[in-house]
Design a protein around this nucleic acid. Structure first.
Ligand SMILES: [Zn+2]
Ligand SMILES: [Zn+2]
Ligand SMILES: [Zn+2]
Ligand SMILES: [Zn+2]
Lengths: 130, 130
DNA sequence: TTGGTATTGAAAATCATTATCAATACACTG
DNA sequence: CAGTGTATTGATAATGATTTTCAATACCAA
């Protein structure tokens, strides 16, 4: 059976203090800076569990890293700052409907969609434009 | 200046024969099986270039791998079969507009969005439902 | 307490991707 | 066509994130 350890609680808690998505490595650093002696592998395991159980949302950064965040339970999407990670949860019934309709039109079943927007929040000055 | 090598052409060509997204490793294997002696690093470089120049689309698989595909030039999104990889290009002005509007409403600049739908195509019987 | 077993974590193992760097192949010139 | 400057190649080492190992440890039910 699943056990309760201070480590899991520490990860859950630390994730809650984050403003946006964080990587396992990032959360681990954060925990260490707070004096925790939790192991990196444990953070990876805890985050995977939280995501699995629906307590956390996870997504792949454009660079391919797995990022996690404690989010609301309902299905939603994200507006993420590429610089500071600030995340805004957004609902988009419009998009939900579009995804459903599109999948159906092409005969695809059990559709799941990935819909996230990355940009620079008002507090972050956009780096040198292309 | 940029040079034309058989390697680049081989990658471009091989990518064209794929019906869905492929990883660099996968395309390299495919090329080798066809008798090519192209190097893995070169495939990575060629794919990165093609993506850069807009000749190929790239996205992250749910497992975090970078996948590539020869796609049409205009901005579009994808409907991908989780089983056979079959990919359908879809346009969604509706979503483009929504993404732009949403980013703006929250003060985000230089927005980029990730919008893809994964499901099972009509030719693939959905595996055991959850 | 005690015993059975999840869980932990330091370190090693994976794996995809990138960097090295000497050798090679292009493109252009004469 | 030969000669030159340099972009490209590719075997291999290096990176970096994530996973696995596995002995030590912490949970928790009894
Ligand atoms: Zn979320
Ligand atoms: Zn920001
Ligand atoms: Zn495409
Ligand atoms: Zn299919």
């Amino acid at each position: 059976m699943k056990r309760n350890t201070w480590q899991r609680e520490a990860v859950r808690s630390a994730l809650g203090t984050q403003m946006g998505f964080v990587s396992a490595q990032g959360l681990h650093s954060s925990l260490k800076n707070s004096g925790s002696h939790i192991g990196l592998a444990t953070v990876y395991r805890a985050l995977a569990d939280l995501a699995q159980e629906g307590e956390a949302d996870s997504l792949q950064s454009p660079e391919g890293e797995s990022l996690y965040r404690a989010c609301s339970l309902e299905h939603h999407h994200h507006l993420i700052c590429r610089s500071c990670g600030l995340t805004v949860e957004i609902e988009a019934d419009e998009v939900e409907e579009w995804a459903r309709r599109t999948a159906q039109q092409h005969g695809f079943s059990r559709p799941e969609h990935v819909v996230d927007i990355f940009g620079f929040c008002s507090a972050c000055v956009p780096p040198v434009p292309a």
